[in-house]
Design a protein around this nucleic acid. Sequence first.
DNA 1: ACGTTCTACTAAACCGGTTTGCTAAACCGG
DNA 2: CCGGTTTAGCAAACCGGTTTAGTAGAACGT
Lengths: 358, 358
Amino acid sequence: MRQETRDRPRIADVAREAGVSKTAVSFAFNSPERLSPDTATRIRDVASSLGYRPHPVARMLTQGRTQTLGLLTPQALSVVFANPFFATFSQGVAVVAEEAGYALLFVSPVQGSLARAVNRATVDGFVALGLAEDHPEVEQIRRAGLPIVMVDSGAAFPEHPAVDVDDEGGARLAAEHLLSLGHRDFLVIGVEPPAPGDQAESGGVVGRRLEGYREALAAAGIDLPDDHVVVGPASVEGGSACLASAWENGRRPTAILAMSDAMAIGAIHAARRLGLRVPADISIVGFDDIELSRHVEPPLTTVHQPVRRKGEEACRLLLSAIARDSSFRPDHRRLETRLIVRGSSGPAPIGKEVAGGR
Amino acid sequence: MRQETRDRPRIADVAREAGVSKTAVSFAFNSPERLSPDTATRIRDVASSLGYRPHPVARMLTQGRTQTLGLLTPQALSVVFANPFFATFSQGVAVVAEEAGYALLFVSPVQGSLARAVNRATVDGFVALGLAEDHPEVEQIRRAGLPIVMVDSGAAFPEHPAVDVDDEGGARLAAEHLLSLGHRDFLVIGVEPPAPGDQAESGGVVGRRLEGYREALAAAGIDLPDDHVVVGPASVEGGSACLASAWENGRRPTAILAMSDAMAIGAIHAARRLGLRVPADISIVGFDDIELSRHVEPPLTTVHQPVRRKGEEACRLLLSAIARDSSFRPDHRRLETRLIVRGSSGPAPIGKEVAGGR
DNA sequence: ACGTTCTACTAAACCGGTTTGCTAAACCGG
DNA sequence: CCGGTTTAGCAAACCGGTTTAGTAGAACGT
């Protein structure tokens, strides 16, 4: 209140100084054609000599729109920005938003409350990333009359536009790839929720990928017992720890299905420390296809998902929901995944398993 | 205006429904102690049954603060989010902002105009990244009475709080390291401004690093002719291209000083394609120490800068500038850099240069 | 010369809240 | 039972703009 208003000139100051009404000043900025050319310029001159600029908040209030899009994440920004996946997604959203003249506000829990953050947020609509199931915030946003696009939320919220990725299919591709290389003994490395009880967020994605793995293995007559699935934090270190602890518990897989590239890379490191060659002794397949994966040694075989396009599509959906003021048919979009074979996967070692698949 | 207001209940609706004044409703939310306990709860009940939430913009207007911090970048968000450096920096800013209950707004040029974006931005202050020299926006912000913290702007803007990093010193360390390994023939790979004419932004950083390289080399009696400095886009591909083209032009350095890790990694790839072993035939040192550098083969020797802490410090400075409403002594902070020796640097190949340095 | 249209501008209402200043009733001590 | 304090709540002003509904005067047509 203070810093802001202390010296900042108001529209009334400009009006007085220029000897016109507030209305005239407003016109000079917003619809100059309603003023005589020289009055308009004179007003603008006075304004700029006073250092006046229309107060953006006041403007928002009267115009009823903020020209800002909210990017909603159930996790704290500290964890969100640690995730390269997120940066790429944001990039997609940002490109489209920017082009349409919208600014981007990151909305994450304020003092633990996502609801409070949503209430504070001055935006024209939300893109919600990884908000699963019946998060009450979604209903809250709907009641506020703001459009919201769900990303990676599975089939939840049919009444809102949504963008998803074929996680299940991607997982199936990864598993089938390893099966076709003759692998029969698998370890799945999964992403554990950042905070306990928070399973909602990534829960959907993790569940869908696991489902995909299971399906493909089942089709080959392979069962995946629970102790062949380990979880840890979605980081390089987390991936290392997962493989290391599984190894200690006596697991001796020839192939690893990791639900995140970071974890897969961690697993490569751990394997090396265990004296295993990748892929000669053990094959590792990741998920997401982050930039890093192309550059590690060996380059990571992984399931590519169009992360950036996901952001772009979500933003486009949101913009069109904002444009049509009536709620129109909610558009659900599902993007494809595909397998990228690089160097971290190879034939199952002979002697442990015969190279059999197909 | 429409979607927003159509069905959304206003404070007056709640007041009418509850049979009280607007004031009472406002009190029920903001200073319940001024109401009798049962009136307060009754009002809140009515409010929530109507699905009322105070309009955040109206609230901003009366309170004069937005509880939002702006992160100002002269580049488009699409290029900004492509940069891992930026994600880490944002993380630092976000952690501190979040803890203080502030949201984060990304402010980048709207239709090419940073000034317009700044005007639109409803924030309590700005952290400006890489805004060099006398960008007119800075003056504009100052006149609006908003605090701004400059990051990576060198000595420009002494009247504003600022956070910098010892780029020059870091560059010197990198060069000295290679000198001590006996290298005498250098190639510097620099970052070229994303858009021509935009040199302002990274210009400062690039200049300071180059200065550091030059100083260290000069101290060893080595001159760095202009054709031993090549520039390209700050990406892996850019780095590859730089080395490749320098090689074509007949340069045969034994050591490469790259101003960004991404470019250094690109240079490693290019070197390999040229049939050179790293570091046996050629040593490569990067700058920034991004996550990726630890994981490439060979692991990259680089100059570490505390990127995340940079973000944290900047945000803290901004918060304290917002808190004290009077402009107080602008705090300038300079963070240290340090050399991280990994596998991409080694003794100069014998025969080309004797291992000489000390 | 007179009614009509246009031009250039204004006063007041409005957006949706918060805050100030005030009042009526309840409470309280003597 | 009475003056003074406290409590609970209200009306109106305000934040800083935009927009609506007019109005005075000039230009225009006949």
